[in-house]
């Protein structure tokens, strides 16, 4: 039996909102040691989502037997919207489940809402992602990255990211004209989450689909900062850290044809 109780529903609500536009169906893997993990790839095989919610993400967590819960994320999102962000949220499943029980509790108002979501058999590819060597790692405010990704998408369907030891430059080249935004590395000791940190082994110049970057920044409400690891001619990794876990996106680059 699985029983995972979150102190607030907001984490799960934000996680599902962050991934449901990229993948429609996914398997939730549940185990006592790892908590809940998800790996899902979008239909175009360009963007991969890796979610880890350790048992420490939960107020209470037990999973007697490893479980795979196949979910339609649009349906899960409909149910998660029924609860308030500050409600307790508990996920419950039997050992051979055909549904997932989702319970919201508002202890102050003595309100308990229960929903049952039908599970599905989902046959999806799982990819082996090794810890990658990277040419550079950038940590910046998640909102600053989201603004660049959203703004530049209006100019071009591609966004070029150029990193040197003291700045990150985003460049868009579209039919109406061009644009660039430079963010300089800075350390803000008073407010460390406002810092822009660049750890550079080698300068990087990579181009990504603006549409996918806009899917990634849907995770912005989950964390103050995002860490981006880039390597020449390889997929980029975007990480939003959660308390006791993470939501990562792996995005394949674009190349000159």
């Amino acid at each position: 039996m699985l029983e995972g109780k979150f102190e607030t529903a907001s984490t799960m609500k934000k996680v599902i909102e962050a991934i449901k536009d990229s993948v429609k169906l996914c398997n939730l893997n549940c185990s006592q040691n790892d908590g809940i993990t998800v790996q899902a790839i979008d239909d175009s095989r360009v963007l991969l989502i890796a979610l880890k919610l350790d048992p420490s993400c939960f107020q209470e967590f037990r999973c007697d037997k490893d479980l795979v819960l196949g979910l339609d994320l649009e349906s899960l999102s409909k149910i998660l919207r029924q609860g308030n962000p500050e409600d307790y949220l508990t996920l419950i499943a039997e050992d051979s489940p055909d549904s997932l029980l989702i319970v919201f509790e508002d202890s102050k108002k003595d309100r308990i809402s229960e929903f049952s979501l039908k599970l599905m058999d989902i046959d999806s590819d799982v990819l082996t992602i090794d810890e990658m060597e990277h040419d550079c790692a950038i940590t910046l405010p998640a909102a600053a990255f989201a603004k660049v990704a959203r703004d530049m998408k209006t100019l071009s369907e591609s966004l070029q990211i150029l990193v040197t030891k003291d700045s990150v430059k985003f460049k868009a080249d579209g039919s109406i004209g061009t644009g660039s935004v430079i963010l300089r590395a800075r350390t803000n000791l008073d407010d460390t989450k406002e810092s822009i940190l660049i750890d550079l082994n080698k300068p990087v110049n990579l181009t990504f689909g603006a549409k996918y970057l806009n899917d990634i920044v849907k995770a912005t409400p989950l964390a103050d900062t995002v860490t981006i690891k880039l390597t020449d001619k390889a997929p980029a990794m975007f990480e939003y850290k959660l308390q006791g876990g993470f939501l990562r996106y792996y995005l394949a680059p674009k190349f000159e044809d």
């Binding site: 790839i41 175009s44 360009v46 963007l47 990819l127 390889a234 394949a252 674009k254 190349f255 044809d257």
Partner: peptide, 14 residues
């Protein structure tokens, strides 16, 4: 013209 790469060119199926 830029061409979009696939993740399958970088990661193998488990």
């Amino acid at each position: 013209q830029m061409k979009q790469a696939s993740l399958l060119s970088f990661f193998s199926k488990a």
